[in-house]
Amino acid sequence: MFTGIIETLGVVTKLEKEQENLHISLESEITQELKIDQSVAHNGVCLTVVGINGKEYTVTAIKETIDKTAVGDWVVGEQVNLERAMKLGDRLDGHIVQGHVDETGVCKRIEDAEGSTIFTFEYNSNSENITIEKGSITVNGVSLTVVNSKKNEFSVAIIPYTLEHTMFKNLKIGTIINLEFDVLGKYVARLHGFKSA
C-alpha cells in the first residue's frame, strides 16, 4: 500500500527485454536504502526490486503490467515518480493507493491558473472507472484531488511544489499517464452495480 505522496524522482538508466518481461534499471537517491524484494511505486506502478548495483536498482515488469500501464513507453533518461510502501503507523498524507494501475489516460490540456497549473486528462470512454468532484485520483503515482469531473475526463490543480518535485514538470499534451482510481470509490461503485454512463 502507498499514499501517493512522492518521495523522490528516479531516472531510467537501462531497459532490457527478456521474452515478454521488461527489466528496468533506475538511479535514485533512495537506492542505498532499498533491499531486494521491496515494493516501490514507479509512476504509480508497484514493482519489486530484483537487483541492486551501486546507485542503480532493477525492477521487472511482466507483460500484463506493460500492456495495462505506460511502462512500455519509458525511455532511458526518463524521470519517474518514486514512492516506497507506507509503514504501519505512519500518517496517511495522501489517500490509500494500491500501486495497481487501472488504466492509462492522456494529457489533453495544460493551463496556467496564476499560482497553480491545471492538467486535464482523458481516459477510455468505455471504462467503468469514474471520478467524482473533490474525490481522490492517482496520476503517475501522485495522490491528487479531482476538479471538473466529467465522463471519461477530469482535471487536477498542481501547486508549484508538486510541479517542481514530480514528473509533472515534464508532462506535455499527448503524454500517456497511469491512472489508479480511488479504491473506496471502486468498491462502492461495484456494490451498487454502477456503470459509467
Rank of each mutant, 00 (worst) to 15 (best):
L82T: 04
D182N: 09
A85D: 02
V139L: 14
G105S: 07
G77Y: 03
V146K: 02
T117M: 11
S125L: 09
T104H: 04
R109V: 09
K186R: 15
I176H: 11
R91N: 08
V106T: 15
I110R: 09
Y187I: 10
N148I: 07
I132Y: 10
N178I: 06
D112A: 15
L179V: 09
T175Q: 12
S155K: 05
M86W: 00
G135Q: 01
E78C: 13
N170A: 14
L82Y: 06
I177F: 08
I110D: 08
E164P: 02
V156D: 01
V156N: 05
I158H: 01
V146M: 01
A189L: 08
G105V: 06
G141F: 07
G99N: 04
D90F: 09
T138F: 00
Y161A: 15
G141H: 09
S155A: 15
K150W: 08
L184P: 08
K195S: 15
G135F: 00
N126D: 15
I118H: 13
Q79G: 10
L163D: 00
A70Q: 11
I176E: 12
M167V: 13
N178Y: 06
Q98K: 14
T117S: 10
G174K: 14
G89R: 13
S125M: 10
T104R: 07
A189Q: 11
V146A: 03
K87C: 07
K186W: 13
I132R: 08
T166L: 08
K195F: 07
I96N: 14
V97R: 02
T120A: 13
E111S: 12
T138L: 00
L171T: 09
E114N: 14
E180Y: 03
L171R: 14
I96H: 12
L144W: 00
L191A: 13
I176M: 10
V106N: 08
I158A: 03
V76T: 07
V142R: 02
F181I: 05
N140Y: 06
E164N: 12
D102S: 07
V80I: 15
I159G: 05
S136L: 02
F194G: 08
S127M: 03
V183C: 11
E111Y: 07
L163E: 04
S149D: 14
L184G: 10
G99V: 04
A197H: 14
V146C: 02
G193N: 06
I159M: 12
I177V: 15
L92I: 13
R190Y: 09
D182V: 04
S143Q: 02
V156R: 02
K169N: 05
D93R: 15
G72L: 09
Y123G: 06
S143P: 00
V101G: 02
E111G: 08
K195C: 10
G115H: 03
L144M: 03
D112M: 10
L92C: 03
T104W: 05
L88I: 13
T117A: 06
C107T: 14
L179K: 11
I159A: 07
F119W: 08
G105E: 07
Q98P: 04
S155Q: 05
K87G: 06
H192F: 13
D182H: 04
L184D: 11
A70W: 08
H192Y: 12
V106A: 10
K169D: 04
L163R: 02
K151M: 13
I137P: 01
G174E: 14
E122T: 11
K195V: 14
E78L: 12
Y161L: 12
V101N: 02
K87W: 04
V101Q: 00
S143I: 01
I118K: 15
N148G: 14
K151Y: 12
V71G: 08
T145L: 05
